[in-house]
């Protein structure tokens, strides 16, 4: 019998599959199609202190084996997330959920995290310091070790729940940012957020995305994500959630061999709303094929020594 269980910052997951923030809403749309309680957990839509519409459209463009998005953190703000979305979410999901948080200042992050820290049913705070689609916030905290350390420290001092810092791949040295977060007290890390990219419409000769640039996700970025998870997990000892282009049970195993203790699945949910269910259903057979009895045993299996 294949053992799919894994552990994320002291909370056991029935399996390592976690829909990534921004690709799963608050779960309702997917709950129409399958019982989402089969998921390890899921990371709900990024939450900010104040409501945000996000960027003007078009926000989406197709790419070879992937897509660009520049949604820009559309969300109803932390008050409404707590008063309206979480009660609805609880009706379709009874496990601990992951709250994803973004901000434009250290105070923003602390405020939003503190509010969500008080909510029952939230297991982890995923602090997004890597959104490439908003100006003057998000990624500006994720591109220098010093800024990442400052946010992480401030949030850790304000909350009780485990803090997972979500890192950007749009940096020269992701390991130094990862180490800075670990030193500042992060309980875990998740990586990678999207890679900044763009596409141009040949007819109009203008960028397809109104924001000009967007974040690249999908199978195209899997090799970059694997490389970064591999490098970061060699350098830190906190648990790492791996993500970037995962679309199959084989991809999950590959990401765990690279060092991830769990995985987030993003763009695949948008193409196939049953993607996470299919991955979970197929994991036991794929594990058997590769002689894996217990998923925990393979974490970091690709590392030397």
């Amino acid at each position: 019998m294949a053992d799919l269980r894994t552990n994320l910052c002291g909370i056991e997951l029935s399996n390592p599959v976690i829909p990534a923030s921004g690709t799963f809403g608050y779960g309702y749309e997917f709950a129409e199609l399958y019982d989402i309680n089969i998921l390890g957990t899921f990371s709900f839509k990024g939450t900010t202190k104040d409501p945000r519409f996000g960027n003007p459209g078009p926000r989406i463009a197709e790419t070879p084996s992937g897509m660009l998005n520049a949604v820009g953190l559309q969300n109803p703000g932390v008050d409404k997330v707590i008063s309206e979305e979480l009660p609805k979410l609880r009706k379709v999901f009874n496990k601990k959920v992951m709250a994803n948080v973004s901000g434009f200042s250290v105070e923003d992050y602390v405020y939003t995290c503190s509010r969500l820290d008080e909510c029952d049913g939230i297991g982890w705070l995923e602090v997004n310091i890597s959104c490439p689609n908003v100006h003057g916030g998000g990624i500006s905290f994720g591109t220098s070790p010093e800024a990442a350390e400052k946010v992480t420290k401030a949030v850790k001092n304000a909350v009780k729940k485990p803090v997972i810092v979500k890192l950007s791949p749009n940096v020269t040295d992701i390991v130094s940012v990862a180490k800075a977060c670990e030193d500042a007290g992060a309980d875990g890390l998740s990586l990678i957020n999207t890679l900044m990219g763009m596409r141009i419409n040949l007819k109009t000769r203008k960028p397809i995305i109104k924001n000009v640039t967007g974040g690249l996700s999908g199978p195209a970025i899997l090799p970059v994500a694997l490389r970064m998870v591999y490098q970061v997990t060699q350098a830190v000892s906190v648990p790492v959630v791996g993500m970037g282009g995962i679309s199959s049970a084989e991809d999950v195993i590959e990401m765990m061999l690279a060092g991830a203790c769990a995985v987030e699945v993003g763009a695949a949910n948008l193409i196939d709303p049953m993607a996470c269910k299919n991955i979970i259903d197929q994991l036991p057979a794929v594990m058997e094929k590769y002689g894996i009895k217990n998923l925990k045993d393979i974490i970091g299996g690709a590392h030397n020594g």
Partner: peptide
């Protein structure tokens, strides 16, 4: 509008 998912998950086609 240009859409990502087409079923409400990604907020790719939001309007005011």
């Amino acid at each position: 509008e240009r859409m990502g998912c087409g079923f409400g998950a990604c907020m790719g086609c939001s309007c005011e």
